[in-house]
Design a protein around this nucleic acid. Structure first.
Lengths: 215, 215, 215, 215
DNA sequence: CATGAATGAGGTTTCATTCAT
DNA sequence: GATGAATGAAACCTCATTCAT
C-alpha cells in the first residue's frame, strides 16, 4: 500500500522525480495519519528525508500539496479499477467481484479513507480547484450499469436499479465499517477488526446487495 | 439541529451551568466545522461569548473538551433513539422507521458525522478514555434483533440476519452519502444534495434493505 | 518542621486565625519547593484547603504573602536560638553547640534555605520592606562575642576573632553543604546525604572552626 | 564577567554558531537574574537580538536551554581552574591561592551562584540528565589532596584532612557570603559589600582555613 | 538541485487577580 | 468569613513559510 509511487511523465532529472515522489508519498502518509490541519510540513520533510524548502519548491504550499496527494490518490484507485473487467464476467459474479474489490481496496489503502474524510471536512474545496477533476469519475458506474442491464435481461436482477445509487451503496457499506471501525469497536466493546468479524462483514455485505438485486 | 444546547447568554452570567453548556455548544460547532486539530480555542471562546480561560477552568484541555463534546453527542443521539419505539410497530414499518430516523438524524445533526470522523482519525483515543463509554452503546441493536425475530416469525423476513451487521449497514448507507457528499458531488459532477437526489437516496436505501430482509 | 504554626496575638476568631496559619504554612511549603516565581497561588490555596480568594483577603498579594512567610521564618529560627543558652556553658562547648544547632536547624528546616535563596535572588527586596526587620537580627552574634571573649580570657582562644565573621562562617559551612547538596552529589558522583557523609561533615566543620579559634 | 561569550551581533547574521552563543549568553544572564521559573523566553530572545523561535530551533525547550547554560557555566569554571597550577607552588601559598581564586571567581561570576541555586531548587534534575556530568567534577579536589599531602610531609599541615571536605568548606565560605549578601546586609543592617567588609571577609576566610590546616 | 537559518503570526495553556454573592 | 465564577495579560511553544547561499 505504500509501494513506491510510479514515475510521472517526462523525466527531467532522476533526482528531481525521485524527490517529488518521496514528498508525495510521505505527504500522503502524514495527511492520512493526522488530517490536513494536523499534518506538519516538518514531518513530511523528515519522512521524505528531504529539506522542507524543497516541498515549497515543488508544490508551492501545504494546500497545494494536499491537492496533489488527493489527485494521486484518485488516480491510484482508478488505475486499480482497470483490472476488474466487470464486463467480461457474468452479472452475479460481477457484483460479488465489485464488492470484494471495494472492500479490499479500502482495506489495503487506509489512507484513501482518511484523505477523503479530510477533504470532505473541507467541503471538497481542494478537489473543486483541481484541473483533473473529470478524470476522477469512476468508469465503474458505467460498467455497473451494463452489468445490471445484463442481469435484468437474463431475468436474474430486478429492474429499476440506479447504478449510481448502487455504486454509492457498495462504497458506503465498505467504507463506513472501516472508517468508523475504532469508534464502533469502542462503543460495541468488541474488536470489529478481528479476522472473523471481517469475514462476516464481507459476507453480510454481499448477501445484502445480492438479496436486493436478485429477483 | 443545534437545539439541545441553549445559545450563549449575556456575559457575566455567573451561571456555571449555563457557561458550561455554552462552551460545549460552541465547541461542538467548532470541532465539527474544523476538526480537532483545526479547531481554535479562541474561536470556541468567542462563539460562546466567554473568556477563553473559562474553558480550561471547566474542561481542562482541548482534548478533554473534545471528549466532553463527544460524550454529549452520543448522549444526544441515544436520547433521540428513545422516541423510536420500534417494538410497538410491525416489523416492516419498524425497518422503514429505523432507516428514516437514521437518515434524518444525520441530516439534522451534521456535526455528528464530522465529530465521529475526527475521533476515528484519532483512533478513538478519546472515547477509550471515557468513563461513560458503556452508556454509548445503542439500545437499537437489541430492539432491531427483536424486530427481525418478529419478522421472521411472521414468515416475512429471511432468517439468519445479524442485527449488529444490519444496524451498521443502515448507518453506513446514510452516513457515507452525507459525510462524503461534497467529494461525491464534485467527482460525479452533480449535486447530490438536491432535494430530488436526497429523496431518491432515501428511497433506494429503503428498497435495498427491505429487498434484503424480506423473503 | 511542618508543625502547626503557633497562634498569633489577639484572637478575633478561631477560624480566622486557623485559616491564616493554614495559608502561611502552605505558602511556606510551596515557596520553599518552587521558589517565588515558581509558586502557584492555586497550589497554596489547595494545600491549605481554602479558597484562593481568602489569601488575597488576608495577605493582599503574592509578594506580601511571601514577605509574611519570610518574617515568620526568621521569627521561628530566632525563637529556636533562644534555647541555646550559650552564655551558660564553657566556651569550647558553646562553639560546638552553636555549630551543631546551626547544622541541625538547617537540616530540620530545609524551607529556611530555599526561602532565603529566593529572597536573595530578589536582592532582599521583600525584607527591606519589612517593618520587623530589626527583630531579625540574631542575638547569637552578641552571645558569640562573649563566648569568644571568655575563651580568650581563659587563654584558650586566639585573639582578634570577629564574631560576625565567625557567625557567618559557621552558617556558611552548614548552609552551603545542604543548599547545594544535590548539585554537589551529582557532580561528585556520590551521595552527600548518606548518614556517614553527614556525620563526617559535622565532624569536619567542628574541627575546622575549633582548629581556628583554639590557640 | 560575561567575557567568554561574544555579545550578540547584527540580526540576519546567518551564523549558526554566533546565534547559539548569543542565545546562551543572554539565557545565562536572564536565568541568573530571575531564576528558571522567573526567566522569560521573550527576554532571552530580545537580549540576544534574535527571534524567539530560534531558541527552540537550537535548544528545544526552556529546560533544555537551562541545562545548556549550566553545562557551559561548569565548563567555564573548570577552564578557569586550569590556570591555578596549585601543584607548582608551596603548600601554604597554594591554600591561599585556592581561597583567593574561589572568592574572586564567584565575585566576578555572580551568575554562577544564582544558576546553581536555581538548579538546587530543582533538585539537580537538569544536571542529572546531562551527558557531560562527569566532565564537571573539579580537578581541584585531586590537586588539593596533593597540596595537603605535601604540607603534611613538610610537617606544616595537620594530618587527616579530607580534601573533599576542605574543598567544599572553602567553597562554602566564599559562596554563602556572596549568595546571601543581600539578606545578611539587610538583617545585620550594614553593607557587607563595602570594600572594607569584602577585604575583611577574604582575610577572615584565609585565617580560618590556615588556622585549621597548619599544625 | 538542495539546504540550514531565520521569522511573524498565532497556537494552547497558565497566572495572579478580581467580581459577585 | 468565605467561595465559585470570571478575566486580561502574558507565558511557553508551534507553524507554515521565506531568506540567503
Amino acid at each position: 500500500m505504500k509501494a513506491p509511487l510510479p514515475a510521472s511523465a517526462e523525466p527531467r532529472s532522476r533526482d528531481a522525480d525521485r524527490s517529488q515522489l518521496a514528498i508525495l508519498a510521505s505527504a500522503r502518509d502524514e495527511f492520512a495519519q493526522r488530517g490536513l490541519a494536523g499534518a506538519r510540513m516538518d514531518s513530511i520533510a523528515a519522512r521524505a528525508g528531504l529539506n522542507k524548502r524543497l516541498i515549497y519548491y515543488y508544490f508551492g504550499s501545504k494546500d497545494d500539496l494536499f491537492l496533489a496527494v488527493l489527485e494521486r490518490t484518485y488516480a491510484d484507485i482508478r488505475e486499480a479499477e482497470q483490472m476488474l473487467h466487470l464486463d467480461e464476467i457474468e452479472p452475479v459474479e460481477a457484483i460479488r467481484r465489485l464488492i470484494s474489490f471495494t472492500w479490499h481496496y479500502y482495506l489495503d489503502h487506509p489512507e484513501f479513507i482518511t484523505l477523503l474524510n479530510s477533504e470532505n471536512l473541507h467541503r471538497a474545496t481542494h478537489l473543486k480547484r483541481s484541473d483533473r477533476i473529470q478524470e476522477m469519475n469512476s468508469p465503474l458506474v458505467q460498467l455497473l450499469d451494463t452489468v445490471l442491464e445484463r442481469g435484468r435481461r437474463d431475468n436474474l436482477f430486478r429492474a429499476g436499479v440506479d447504478p449510481v445509487q448502487l455504486y454509492i451503496s457498495i462504497a458506503s457499506l465498505c467504507y463506513f465499517y472501516l472508517s468508523n471501525n475504532d469508534t464502533l469497536s469502542a462503543v460495541f466493546g468488541r474488536d470489529l477488526r478481528a479476522p472473523k468479524a471481517m469475514a462476516q462483514r464481507l459476507s453480510h455485505m454481499t448477501d445484502l446487495v445480492l438479496g436486493y438485486v436478485l429477483r
